[in-house]
């Protein structure tokens, strides 16, 4: 069953189209949404799309997770660098998100605004 999906080309096409559609959802939200938290959510969606694209593109069907049993077998493992990079990037993105939410909470308390369009008290 589902042998059709067991070819690298099909997987690659699915990964590219799927992750780019997700990127599209995030970019669309970023360009059209006005609420600060929704903008942060759009940014998070775009980031997730990039991570998905990276992990998916370098995923090999016949390889296994890079956990070695003995010291000298190096073949048949997936590339460990995408995992390490994405682990770092996820934590950084989470930190920025938490910081942004705390800014938004404090700004809302001070001025009662959540709309990015009304944030213009400095323009004159």
């Amino acid at each position: 069953m589902f042998e059709f999906f067991n070819s690298p080309e099909v997987i690659n096409i699915i990964v590219i189209i799927g992750s780019m559609l997700l990127f599209f959802v995030g970019l669309f939200g970023l360009l059209t949404q006005k609420h600060i938290i929704k903008i942060f959510m759009s940014i998070a969606i775009m980031e997730t799309a990039v991570y998905l694209f990276f992990i998916g593109s370098l995923f090999k069907l016949d390889a296994i997770a890079p956990i070695m049993k003995v010291a000298d077998d190096t073949s048949k493992f997936n590339d460990p660098i995408p995992h390490a990079m994405i682990l770092t990037a996820i934590v950084i993105a989470m930190a920025v998100f938490a910081l942004g939410v705390s800014f938004a909470i404090e700004y809302y308390k001070l001025s009662g605004k959540t709309n990015i369009d009304t944030m213009n008290e400095m323009r004159h």
Binding site: P66, I67, M68, K69, D72, T74, F77, P80, H83, L87
Partner: peptide, 15 residues
Amino acid sequence: GLLKLNSSEGVANVV
């Protein structure tokens, strides 16, 4: 390259 290097300098979980 890192996978090869891991067998001499690393631990079981390469990540």
